[in-house]
Amino acid sequence: MWCAVWGFEVLPKQSIGESVLAELLERASTDGVAPRVGVVVEREGAVLLLERAEHVAGRRRPLSLPGTIVRTGESLASAVARAVAEETGLTVVDIRRHLGSFDYLSSAGKPVRREHFAVEVAGVEPIRLTNYARYRWVPLDGDLPVTSSVRGILEAYQG
């Protein structure tokens, strides 16, 4: 996240350790996959999930975790903070731990690796959405309306 007034980058605390983040980014490069990030934000036993506006009649679209692509030359810590700020308006103050990853093909057919992180935010209100129509706080012990890949990440988060 950039401070427009001073022109420098303000990174969240990284309890996870900077070397872990650098290693994950290097591994993605070595494996030839584009890095993306997904972020778990929790409030009182519920996780923040985002819902796109597109709707297919008779079908519920799975909800998503906040996330984004990692820009060329951008650190994972910056991408995590930017994803949460841009998609929810919340501010990441700590990247606590890595939860795992999964690989998939983008809509353009390119290999992608989405690395997921548990974060602490400065506060959970107000949520200001940009790319999504709605958000929901879904109890972690309930029925999670997400893909099996995201379900695996949330199980790792709970473990």
Rank of each mutant, 00 (worst) to 15 (best):
72 T>G: 09
39 V>Y: 05
37 V>A: 14
98 H>T: 04
153 I>R: 05
133 A>L: 12
157 Y>D: 09
11 L>Q: 06
3 C>V: 10
144 L>I: 12
97 R>D: 01
86 E>G: 00
56 V>N: 07
132 Y>A: 05
93 V>P: 00
10 V>S: 05
50 L>S: 03
89 G>T: 00
75 S>N: 00
154 L>R: 07
54 E>L: 10
90 L>Q: 04
74 E>V: 00
138 V>W: 07
70 V>Y: 02
20 V>Y: 04
140 L>M: 11
80 V>K: 04
20 V>S: 05
31 D>T: 14
8 F>M: 14
133 A>P: 02
148 S>M: 11
87 E>Q: 13
158 Q>H: 03
25 L>H: 14
14 Q>W: 08
131 N>I: 11
124 V>M: 05
92 V>M: 03
123 G>F: 13
106 S>Y: 10
46 A>P: 00
42 E>P: 02
114 R>P: 04
108 A>Q: 13
46 A>T: 02
135 Y>A: 14
157 Y>H: 12
101 S>N: 05
90 L>S: 05
85 A>L: 13
155 E>Q: 10
66 P>H: 04
7 G>E: 15
64 S>Y: 11
2 W>T: 06
134 R>Y: 11
116 H>W: 09
21 L>A: 13
82 R>A: 04
87 E>I: 08
112 V>A: 04
107 S>W: 01
10 V>F: 04
121 V>W: 09
20 V>C: 08
109 G>R: 09
114 R>K: 15
110 K>C: 04
141 D>C: 08
3 C>T: 07
153 I>W: 03
103 D>C: 03
32 G>L: 06
152 G>S: 12
128 R>N: 15
116 H>C: 15
86 E>I: 03
87 E>W: 01
96 R>F: 02
154 L>C: 10
43 R>A: 07
36 R>S: 14
146 V>S: 08
151 R>Y: 11
134 R>G: 10
149 S>Y: 11
58 G>I: 03
117 F>D: 03
76 L>K: 08
84 V>Q: 06
21 L>H: 11
11 L>E: 11
54 E>I: 06
65 L>M: 02
80 V>P: 01
54 E>N: 06
86 E>K: 06
26 E>A: 15
28 A>V: 08
121 V>E: 08
142 G>F: 09
105 L>P: 01
150 V>H: 09
84 V>S: 02
18 E>W: 12
134 R>I: 11
152 G>E: 12
69 I>T: 13
88 T>V: 03
19 S>R: 14
103 D>V: 06
31 D>A: 15
49 L>Y: 00
87 E>M: 04
121 V>Y: 10
114 R>S: 09
5 V>R: 15
126 P>Y: 12
119 V>G: 07
16 I>Y: 08
33 V>A: 12
59 R>W: 09
5 V>N: 15
154 L>K: 07
97 R>T: 00
92 V>T: 04
49 L>M: 03
153 I>G: 12
47 V>M: 01
20 V>A: 13
7 G>Q: 15
59 R>N: 02
128 R>A: 15
120 E>K: 05
75 S>P: 01
46 A>D: 00
42 E>V: 14
48 L>Y: 01
61 R>D: 10
139 P>L: 08
67 G>I: 04
125 E>F: 12
49 L>P: 00
122 A>V: 13
156 A>E: 12
127 I>F: 09
54 E>V: 12
26 E>N: 14
154 L>V: 08
96 R>A: 06
38 G>R: 07
150 V>P: 10
118 A>H: 12
